[in-house]
């Protein structure tokens, strides 16, 4: 193919199909912007998940269709090549370049319009997605940083009843909360009763398990799943998410799996009525380690 004939075509100016292509792209992008705005409206007025899905789908579809039409109709598909000769161009070629550039300038104008409208599409769609992030809720950080238990808090069952030291049979395990904060995120605790003479807690924790009642944070130190799977015969707490196991008798140190920290233990004591109370907060912040790093 001769380089001169190429240039003649270019110099001929934009064709009809070029114009219709621009119109199509503009139409597709306008639809995308309209659905992006509709998504934002539907989201902030709680119009329902169906509308959210449809508007986001049409918006992304409009953006995709516009980009495809742009690539097919407005961009060149032929490969231009010329034999490598002199580096210096001839005068005619230079003149032709100037003319090409002037012709191209009009195109640049038109492309600028397309550029603006595609920026508009991206802006509305990104605004839609960004506002939907609000639905993920409050970050758990501040809740987990606040003390979960304080000394004297009564241990209660999920229906708010206090737990006596003999309420659990040996080999029982239930979820308990601090009194008045049933269902709290950071206060959720596994209460396990084991035979007292099996206990082998770390130093400084003597008397933390009256009558064999042990309390550990229910949030896995690896990724924050509830560690509520207690295997009685092996005295293991197992996290169902990534199979971290914690040796209950040894202060819930991790024995296998990805968790690196022991489950924080809650010191317990018996009040005069024989009910279990917290002797203080957990030994460490409950929850996975990375939350404390991010803070």
């Amino acid at each position: 193919m001769n380089a001169d004939t190429e240039r003649v075509e270019t110099r001929g100016g934009p064709s009809r199909s070029h114009y219709s292509g621009v119109v199509l792209v503009l139409a597709a992008f306008t639809i995308a912007i309209a659905s992006g705005i509709a998504f934002l409206y539907a989201y902030w007025t709680n119009a329902g998940t169906w509308l959210l899905g449809i508007t986001m789908g049409v918006g992304a579809g409009g953006l995709g269709a516009g980009l495809v039409i742009w690539a097919h109709r407005l961009m060149r598909h032929d490969e231009a090549s010329s034999p490598r000769e002199l580096l210096q161009s001839t005068d005619e070629e230079r003149q032709a370049l100037v003319e090409d550039f002037l012709t191209g300038e009009q195109r640049v104008e038109r492309r600028r319009l397309l550029g603006w409208i595609s920026a508009g599409v991206l802006l509305t769609l990104v605004a839609g997605i960004a506002s939907a992030v609000r639905s993920l809720g409050k970050p758990p950080m501040p809740v987990l940083k606040a003390p979960a238990w304080k000394r004297g808090d009564r241990v209660v069952t999920p229906d708010g009843k206090p737990v006596s030291a003999a309420a659990l049979a040996i080999g029982s395990a239930i979820t308990v909360y601090p009194e008045g904060r049933v269902g709290s995120l950071s206060g959720q605790t596994m209460l396990i009763r084991v035979k007292e003479d099996l206990l082998h807690l770390p130093k400084g924790r003597t008397g933390w398990a009256p009558m064999g009642n042990l309390a550990y944070s229910r949030i896995c130190t690896h990724a924050g799943c509830p560690v509520a799977l207690y295997e009685v015969r092996r005295h293991l707490l197992l996290c169902p998410c990534h199979q971290s196991t914690f040796a209950v008798l040894q202060g819930a140190v991790p024995t296998s799996g990805p968790a690196a920290r022991a489950l924080p233990q809650l010191p317990l004591y018996l009040d005069p009525d024989g009910n279990l109370r917290a002797g203080g907060d957990f030994t460490e912040h409950p929850g996975p380690g990375f939350w404390s790093i991010i803070a």
Partner: peptide, 12 residues
């Protein structure tokens, strides 16, 4: 509470 399963007495 058979096997590895913990028992849940009527008190809790």
């Amino acid at each position: 509470g058979p096997g590895e399963m913990p028992a849940f007495p009527v008190s809790v």
